[in-house]
Simulated scan of single mutants.
Amino acid sequence: MKQLRSILAACILGSATMAFMTSCQGEKQVIIYSNADDEAIAAMGQALDKAGYKDKYMFTTFSTSELGGKVIAEGKNIEADMLTLSSYYLDSAQSANKMFLPLTFAMEPLKPVNPCFGPITGQEGAIFINTKVIEDRGIAVPKSLKDLSKPEYKGLISIPNIKSSSTAWLMVQALVNAYGEEETRQILKAMIDNAGPHLENSGSAPLKKLRAGEVAIAFGLRQQAVADKKKGLPIDYVDPTEGTFSLMEAVAIPDKGDNTNPETMKMAEIMIREGRKELIKTYPVPLFHGEQAVSDAKSPHQKTFPQPLTVELLKKHQSLMDN
């Protein structure tokens, strides 16, 4: 009995301590699930901190496919109070689960978006080259994505795998739009053969191998090569003749009824309205009216895929990489 009383006393004390801590700390932290890069997380966090939300939120990061699958599977039961995620996953999750609240603040995006989503970043793809390796090897600079399937580039290219990287989808969209699915399948097969061990699961891995001089050519997010070139690295970029396609990441708020944290709508507005001031420096594709970007920030050959970007379309395009 004495031992039991001690245990009960400890439980009561623990509960009281937790209640005291909760009282001192205020409301529960807002949980934000995100697939964003570190630079984007830092920019959004900085905007929230300046607006008085320091220590009142917590980012938890996932890969794009992991978070996208989680959102679609869990729907409104997801733990997160807010999300930032690729818009095609958000669109598919909304269609399947009707799970997001309409955003109540005014926005002026350049392109129409679902009223439940607030654009955060725009990302374009491009061919990258290591100018030193190109010169040392005496090979031609590719002009198109299809060029990367030529035998002369065997062992010299690195590309991301669409099975695990959303960056690769930018490449596949361009190929399918230009050549159709069957020819794209053949082009991708030759590109994969050329890449060999340099077919990467991460969208940023090809650029890392390019920087290290392990390959001469890579495919990745355009703004990364633009930044490297400005730093004086032997990195340059080529906007492929097939056109430059883009993906958008956006903020969304799960509809949890009475349990929806009222601060989330204010925070979403801050992440977009204030966060974009910093985000556009790293992701320099304008998303809203009034935004200005330097001349090299976006490709002059922008194109839009003729079908809506959905998880179903992604799966269809992923199958094109099956041998």
Rank of each mutant, 00 (worst) to 15 (best):
K2N: 14
F20M: 13
C24D: 03
Q25A: 12
E27L: 09
I32G: 08
A43E: 15
Q46I: 10
G52R: 06
F59D: 14
T61W: 00
T61P: 03
A73G: 02
G75K: 00
N77L: 07
T84P: 03
S87T: 14
Y88E: 15
Q94T: 07
A96N: 07
L101W: 00
T104D: 11
P112N: 09
I120N: 09
K132N: 11
K132W: 00
V133K: 14
R137C: 09
I139L: 04
V141S: 09
S144T: 11
P151S: 10
K154D: 12
P160L: 06
M171E: 08
V172D: 03
L175G: 00
G180V: 04
G180K: 06
Q186V: 01
A190I: 00
P197I: 02
P197D: 08
S204R: 06
P206Q: 05
A218T: 05
L221E: 11
V226T: 13
D228P: 03
K229T: 10
K229Y: 02
I235C: 06
Y237A: 08
P254I: 07
D255V: 05
D255F: 00
M267A: 12
E269G: 13
M271C: 11
I272E: 15
E278C: 06
E278G: 14
E278Q: 14
K281I: 10
K281L: 14
F288G: 13
Q292F: 01
S295H: 00
S295A: 14
H301Q: 13
P306M: 07
P308A: 10
Q318D: 03
M321R: 10
D322A: 10
